[in-house]
Amino acid sequence: MLTIRTTAAAAAAVAAAVTVIGCAAPPQQQATAPFVRPVESVRHGMDADTLYRTGRYLQGQQRFEQAEDTYRRALDAQPTHVDALNALGVIYSLHGRAALAEQSFRLAIKADPQAARVHNNLGYHLMREGRAAEAIASYERARELEPGNAGIASNLASALATVKMPAQAPALAAVPAPPMPAPPVPVVSVSPAPTQRIEIANGHGAPGLARRVWSAVRQDDAQARFANDKPYGVAVSRIQYVAGGERLARDINAKLATPLPLVAVASLKRDARVRVLLGKDFSQGAIAISSTTRSHS
């Protein structure tokens, strides 16, 4: 997933919004930080770190244009500010500005070649652009820098699984069989088709979001399981599926007002065929919202 490093003075409200462009791996633990007072404008004369933290707050409020402007002010004050460059890359990638996203990530890496989080972010961005070989190279570099990071390892495994997914073998020509006498027809009880398992994970944090999404995309032949992806730092929503689950994933996606990216993975937990991961970018207008549910799931 794409991540932005938390600094000591970053707002707690911001922390959930800066783990960006998600994956199947659990997000990293965010540090508790003091509250940052909401701002409507950015004062001149702030240093780069203060501007970056302010941008983090604005991004956590999904005020992306103001956040982008604030990150640019941070870079005016310090052109090699790695976190500001990384944060800009995240915003650009989320909003489909691919060339600017890649440029920002690579400038951040040039400023700090040891920044594993930026290599990881660049890897996920390249995967979104269909450049799997380059993405895998970025993930591998990130893993070299942080070998114990479970999120990076998961991103790399998913990328390798997608690339190595075997192509479907061509069908063999049918050979007509000699005519045979019709056998007697026995009475056989037919068992119902097995229920397909779906996991809906709330990485957004809005109470009851997973259950409300299931109400909107419910499938008659599927059974849903709800989960919380704490600490609700998933930034990009997506639908993951294993081999044989692509049709079910597409059926679910078709019922959403705003379709989500479909990602093939090697495996999912608890024999799920499809996993719907809801992140901070999930539009509250994509489903009917009810505020009566108390649990996060």
Rank of each mutant, 00 (worst) to 15 (best):
A171L: 11
T54M: 10
A264C: 08
G148P: 04
S191W: 10
A9Y: 07
A227T: 15
A177M: 12
E144C: 06
R43C: 10
A288Q: 05
V236P: 02
R128A: 13
A11C: 14
Y124L: 10
V217N: 02
T7Q: 12
A115F: 01
L126C: 08
G148D: 15
R212N: 11
L58M: 11
A171T: 14
R212M: 15
E246Q: 12
G208K: 05
L260R: 00
G233S: 12
R73S: 10
T54S: 11
N86M: 03
Q284C: 04
R294K: 14
R131D: 15
L209H: 02
I4Q: 07
N120I: 05
C23M: 05
F105S: 08
L94T: 06
R141V: 04
G123Y: 00
A288S: 06
D112F: 02
L248Q: 11
P179R: 14
A48M: 09
K255T: 01
R211A: 14
R117G: 11
A161S: 10
L122V: 06
A98I: 09
A99P: 07
T70R: 05
S104Q: 09
A84D: 08
G279Y: 00
L277D: 05
E68C: 04
A31N: 12
N121Y: 02
R270Y: 08
A17F: 03
L85N: 06
D220A: 15
A182S: 14
A111I: 04
G60V: 06
A157K: 03
A222E: 13
A249T: 04
A272E: 07
G89Y: 01
G233K: 00
S267R: 10
P34H: 09
E40H: 09
V213R: 00
